[in-house]
Design a protein around this nucleic acid. Structure first.
Length: 585
RNA sequence: GUCCCCGUAGCUCAGCUGGAUAGAGCAUCGGAUUCCUAAUCCGAAGGUCACAGGUUCGAAUCCUGUCGGGGAUACCA
């Protein structure tokens, strides 16, 4: 019997009839502070029936319970009855669950669902920058969490690889002296061309009439480039294909470096034909109607402004392609739930999309969810690929890698003396990725992230490096002993095991399944980042206060088992964020 | 105008379905290293939880309103 069950049984016995109608999930929870115990029962709901003040009830209930088995101690504090788990019994329960798979099973949902998660959605011919990183890491973390929950997850990407913005870039390349592209960062190079084209044709208040006319003429040229692309004219098509491939290759390289995978890619360039067909079909059915020369889906009955599905000049828009994409997802992939990881600017777009799909007769529209998150901002405002103010991703990657390797090389450590160059690079890579992923994912989805390179590289405090460091210290302990720890074997004597720091860490480790259950509901993985950081802090305290290898036999065995459990749980939690541990750093 | 998000320590943020003395990191000040990695740990200082009402035995948390910041609001993606 585990601790929680034992507490409920003891309370049921002590409370008699009053216990029958209690909602344990609501009134039985961990206390605010760890030194107050492992589970607390608030006596508030009994106050009316017993016509007594909660603190009085708590005192009576505590006195009526004799601690046995997993329950180590019971005490009343104010209106609460606090239960302390027997440390050794808890330790054995946790290590046992980790060994026999019960822990992993408790992370899984009862039912397995086929879920598609669409994320990243980069545009070719534009700079891939730090802002896009948040989307990739959020989507990837959700894929990992939903998979751990036992779902059949289908991660997909959707490339914006066609349209007027691509034409702007190609127009600039073909009309200006742009030199040759760099060996690395060709996407950023194309993005700069795109940005310069935008600047060139954007009309400002200072422009006189002649300048304005010139800019209009340039815009007409860009439309002409788009027309040539659409008609597949050889010259421009070759340039389009070549530059598009540069971008796709570079995206693939970024995903590989970040260890992010997709099982299917969708391309905007392939959606135009089916998108047109959908609009025609539902126009004929009457689901879509003509309005002011354009075609819309009226959504007034659900309280939304109409969704525009075809412009008055006959062109398609985002909405049109998204309808075709959604139809594809439902019809060809047999998915039950469909998630879209897209910034919060698109909140209305997705409300309209899902409402339109419902009107089109897709029952699954109610199982679509928009995973909305706030943007990554620069200290002085929004990042814009249009204006070219964003830090390209490859710059960030190198900046972080260099800073971390410099930091490591600056301090002597016996662990590193025998490292080969490959080990240096590999460790720096893992630490860099931990910093980036943790830095992005520790903020809640509704929170804006301010990007400041100094903060990302700060070696102290609440960072991904701290998490890896804690884990490296555990590895360090196991490196210095031959004593093997078998989680499946229960420990029968704990010596001095059971101090505050040990009980605190132990209690924390057991909460991971609750955390990931919550993440499936909220689709916000920051709770896992929080869990990891809190856990690392608790471990550091334990590490400081409790010598492991120098302790007496019984104490040492128990503490080693706790270390092994912490290593196992932290590694699982890190993996949910896509972070790999290091043995030493 | 309407809708969405945010407002908690000097700064950046946690705070799970309402419950015990509102918690971390950074920055500031003080302390810890003959001992498993000091990218660490301990302590001090720092709060009218934007404001005003309401619901409740109890509100940072729920409701209403006000103020401030950001975003969206059919022919950009």
């Amino acid at each position: 019997m585990d601790f929680r069950e034992a507490v409920i049984e003891a309370l049921t016995h002590a409370l008699g009839d009053d216990a029958s109608s209690l909602d344990w999930g609501r009134f039985l929870s961990p206390p605010k502070k760890a030194e107050m115990g492992d589970l607390a029962f608030g006596c508030f709901p009994l106050a009316k029936a017993r016509r007594m003040a909660p603190p009085q009830i708590a005192a009576e209930v505590a006195a009526a319970i004799e601690p046995t088995g997993p329950i180590g101690k019971v005490e009343a504090v104010g209106p609460y009855v606090n239960f302390f788990a027997d440390p050794l019994a808890s330790l054995n329960a946790l290590t046992g669950a980790l060994a026999d798979g019960a822990f992993d099973a408790s992370m899984r949902s009862g039912t397995s669902t086929r879920i598609m998660v669409e994320f990243s959605q980069p545009n070719t011919h534009k700079t891939f920058h730090v802002g896009h990183l948040r989307n990739v890491l959020l989507g990837d973390a959700l894929v990992r969490v939903l998979s751990a929950r036992g779902h059949d997850v289908v991660p997909v990407n959707y490339y914006g690889d066609f349209g007027i913005d691509v034409a702007k870039c190609l127009w600039w390349l073909t009309t200006q002296d742009v030199g040759t592209p760099p060996a690395e960062g060709r996407t950023a190079w194309l993005g700069a061309a795109y940005s310069q084209a935008n600047t060139a044709i954007t009309i400002t208040d200072e422009d006189d009439e002649a300048t304005q006319a010139a800019k209009h003429a340039q815009f007409k040229d860009i439309r002409e480039v788009l027309r040539r692309m659409e008609e597949g004219e050889p010259d421009i098509t070759q340039l389009y294909r070549e530059t598009r491939q540069w971008c796709l290759d570079e995206f693939a390289d970024v995903y590989r470096w970040l260890d992010v995978r997709f099982v299917h890619d969708f391309f905007e360039s392939e959606l135009e034909a089916p998108a047109r067909a959908i609009v025609d079909a539902y126009l004929a059915k009457g689901t879509f109607v003509e309005s002011e020369g354009a075609i819309i889906c009226d959504l007034e009955d659900v309280g939304l402004v109409p969704a525009l599905v075809r412009k008055s000049d006959g062109a398609s828009l985002y909405m049109t392609w998204d309808l075709a994409l959604a139809a594809d997802k439902f019809d060809k992939f047999g998915i039950e739930r469909s998630y879209y990881v897209v910034a919060s600017e698109q909140n209305l777009h997705f409300q309209q999309l899902f409402a339109t799909l419902e009107k089109m007769g897709y029952d699954r529209a109610k199982d679509c969810r928009h995973v909305s998150y706030e943007l990554v901002m620069l200290p002085d405002g929004k990042m814009s690929s249009r204006k070219g103010t964003a830090t390209p991703f490859h710059e960030l990657r190198h900046g972080v890698l260099d800073a971390i390797e410099t930091k490591m090389r600056a301090e002597a450590r016996t662990e590193r003396e025998s490292w080969t160059d490959d080990q240096w690079h590999e460790t720096a890579r893992k630490v860099a990725i931990a910093c980036l992923k943790y830095g992005m994912l520790r903020a809640g989805n509704t929170r804006r992230v301010i990007y400041k390179l100094e903060d990302w590289l700060n070696p102290e405090g609440d960072t991904g490096a701290y998490l890896l460091y804690s884990l490296a210290r555990i590895s360090g302990i196991f490196r210095k002993t031959d004593e093997a720890v078998d989680l499946a074997t229960a420990i029968d004597a704990g010596g001095e095991f059971g101090g505050q720091a040990e009980r605190d860490l132990l209690g924390h480790l057991g909460r991971l399944p609750d955390v990931i259950r919550r993440v499936e509901d909220t689709l916000d993985p920051s709770a896992i980042a929080q869990f990891l950081y809190d856990g690392a802090k608790k471990f550091s305290r334990f590490y400081q206060e409790c010598p492991v290898l120098k302790a007496d036999d019984d104490t040492r065995r128990a503490r080693l088992a706790l270390c092994k459990a912490a290593e196992t749980v932290f590694t699982k939690a890190l993996a949910l964020l896509g972070i790999e541990p290091v043995e030493a750093m």
